[in-house]
Computed example of a mutant assay.
Amino acid sequence: MPFRRYVALGDSFTEGVGDPDPALPNGVRGWADRAATVLLDTGDSGDTGGTGGTGGTGGTGQVGYANLAIRGRKLDAVLAEQLDPALALRPDLVSIYAGGNDILRPRVDVDTLVARYAEGLQRLAATGARLVVFTAHDRGRVAGFGALRSRFALYNELLREVADDLDATVVDFWRLHEYRDLRLWSEDRIHMSPAGHQRMAAAFLDALGVAHRLPAPSLAAASQPTPRERRAETLAWTRTHAVPWLRRGLTGRSSGDGLRPRYPEYVTALA
């Protein structure tokens, strides 16, 4: 196992929203937990050979996992709140996805957004840790998101350039076409379902070259709604999810208000 200290940063994507588990911090599991379970189980009791001294993992051979992500956070908040704590943990593996909540806002300068993101990524890469970033998914085929497709495409291309410059590993969510299956998404159409998180955990480990035996997601039988049923679903989604999200944005509130990071220090085992 080449990695001993894994830190995950970001927003709801990395916190695990859409993959509920009431027994876990903030009531969610998520792809990062699922991937970390593989990393933790793969670790042995030998000498790490690394710098150690952090979160109780140094020199013991144990693999440590921290997750600082909080739902609803925009890019500047992720960098301001999570970057320094992540650096203090001295990771040798760090993943981050940020900026998606900014792109969903009515106005955004994507070039400026990614330029700020690049500054944070440079600080992470300078530690020598393996850096993993994610492109955004292509949600343009989903009702309610078509107008934002070009924004996400530009974000992705700019991010790929930054990743190339930093020799970062890219999990190219945009090109994971199986996510066109709505069964990999929760009913809010924004967050992955448990099956989607399971698939993302495998994609993350595959990108790192870490062997795993994560099973393929278990999917219910696909439904074929009629046009009338699709319209009714979109109307229900608008009332239940889109309107409350817009209301929070207009009032300056966030779904992550009052929440703390799920694992602010290294843990060496997960439930």
Score class of each variant (00 low, 15 high):
residue 228 R to H: 10
residue 212 H to G: 03
residue 127 T to W: 10
residue 169 T to Q: 06
residue 146 G to W: 10
residue 105 R to L: 14
residue 193 S to M: 02
residue 125 A to F: 06
residue 108 V to Q: 11
residue 101 N to T: 07
residue 186 S to L: 09
residue 230 R to C: 11
residue 225 P to L: 14
residue 114 V to F: 00
residue 101 N to Q: 09
residue 202 A to P: 02
residue 212 H to E: 07
residue 99 G to A: 01
residue 193 S to I: 04
residue 128 G to C: 11
residue 191 H to L: 09
residue 160 R to T: 03
residue 207 A to Q: 05
residue 204 F to I: 04
residue 181 D to A: 14
residue 211 A to K: 13
residue 197 H to L: 11
residue 112 T to G: 06
residue 222 A to N: 14
residue 219 L to I: 12
residue 116 R to N: 06
residue 102 D to M: 10
residue 105 R to E: 14
residue 226 T to N: 14
residue 173 F to V: 15
residue 213 R to E: 15
residue 99 G to C: 07
residue 115 A to M: 00
residue 105 R to D: 15
residue 116 R to V: 02
residue 116 R to T: 03
residue 149 R to V: 09
residue 140 G to A: 08
residue 141 R to V: 02
residue 172 D to C: 13
residue 228 R to Q: 15
residue 228 R to Y: 11
residue 109 D to P: 08
residue 129 A to I: 00
residue 103 I to R: 02
residue 180 R to Q: 14
residue 156 N to L: 10
residue 199 R to F: 04
residue 118 A to C: 07
residue 146 G to D: 10
residue 202 A to R: 14
residue 106 P to A: 10
residue 223 S to K: 14
residue 231 R to E: 15
residue 173 F to E: 06
residue 112 T to A: 15
residue 174 W to V: 09
residue 198 Q to F: 01
residue 219 L to K: 06
residue 156 N to P: 09
residue 152 F to L: 07
residue 106 P to S: 06
residue 143 A to C: 00
residue 142 V to N: 05
residue 106 P to T: 12
residue 152 F to M: 13
residue 139 R to E: 01
residue 95 S to T: 09
residue 149 R to C: 03
residue 160 R to N: 00
residue 215 P to N: 02
residue 181 D to W: 13
residue 210 V to A: 06
residue 142 V to T: 11
